[in-house]
């Protein structure tokens, strides 16, 4: 069964339609990449899936794990296993990473009728997962993203993903602003977290992240629709030839 199925999705912001009927199906165990020029609707798709309020869905459905995703509040989507790695993670003064994650994990566990994690288990888990994204443990007592470099913020997104163990994760341009070492750390994290039961949607502008996270499918998003899909080789072709030929092909 498909883990997530997006059908004819239309969405607008302040009356301005960005997604014009998008279709996409992702099965558990798969990694999909969405590429496309600026303004094609990539980040809108990520925001709509996470439930950002400013975006209004006017048509279409999104089914996640057999349930209607669009009907759920943002926190319930997260609790059900949808994770968004933000393109611009926010800073939250005074709230430590540890406190924030403990709150999030226990909310999610409560939703799943699991007992809250005790402090020792949580600590253990945090230390272990921190290694995965090569972050210092001092980082965990700092306020969420406050004073973090661009790279640290993105690593923190992947670290949170590792902690929350989502079924479906959307990485919204996580590679933007990363140097090559940080990108390897991010990619390495994703590859280690990948299982047969979860799936990833990588939104990116460039093919280079896909050298490290090998996608099963690559889609081209243009003007709010997926206009071409292919295997990982499509990413190379796009890198080399740009997007115009795909658009031309789509019109023809």
């Amino acid at each position: 069964m498909a883990l997530i199925e997006i059908k004819n999705l239309k969405a607008n912001i302040y009356g301005n339609e960005i997604l014009h009927g998008l279709n996409l199906t992702i099965n558990a165990g798969e990694i999909h990449a969405i590429m496309g020029p600026n303004g094609s609707g990539k980040s809108t798709l990520a925001s709509v899936l996470a439930g950002k309020e400013e975006f209004e869905v006017t048509e279409g459905t999104v089914t996640f794990d057999g349930i209607d995703l669009l009907d759920m509040s943002p926190e319930d989507r997260a609790r059900a296993g949808v994770f968004l790695a933000f393109q611009y993670p926010v800073e939250i003064p005074g709230v430590s990473n540890a406190n924030f994650l403990k709150t999030a994990i226990n909310e999610i566990r409560k939703f799943r009728n699991q007992d809250p994690l005790d402090a020792m288990d949580f600590l253990q888990m945090m230390k272990e997962r921190a290694k995965l994204v090569e972050i210092e443990s001092s980082f965990l007592s700092r306020s969420v993203n406050v004073g973090f470099s661009g790279g640290e913020k993105k690593k923190n997104e992947i670290f949170q993903m590792a902690m929350l163990e989502p079924k479906f994760a959307v990485l919204d341009e996580t590679d933007s602003g990363l140097d090559i070492d940080a990108m390897k750390v991010v990619a390495n994290g994703v590859n280690k977290l990948k299982t047969d039961d979860n799936a990833f949607l990588i939104i990116t502008h460039y093919q280079r992240l896909l050298d490290y996270i090998i996608p099963d499918f690559v889609h081209v998003l243009s003007e709010g629709r997926i206009i071409k899909s292919g295997g990982k080789e499509l990413a190379y072709e796009l890198e080399e030839r740009g997007y115009d030929w795909v658009k031309a092909e789509a019109i023809a």
Partner: peptide
């Protein structure tokens, strides 16, 4: 929204932010 996306309800998010704000 960021906290919601991590599974934290709005009410708890506000409490968390307010405590962070008052931390100093």
């Amino acid at each position: 929204f960021y906290l919601n996306q991590r599974g934290i309800s709005t009410e708890d998010a506000v409490a968390l932010i307010v405590n962070g704000y008052a931390k100093e």
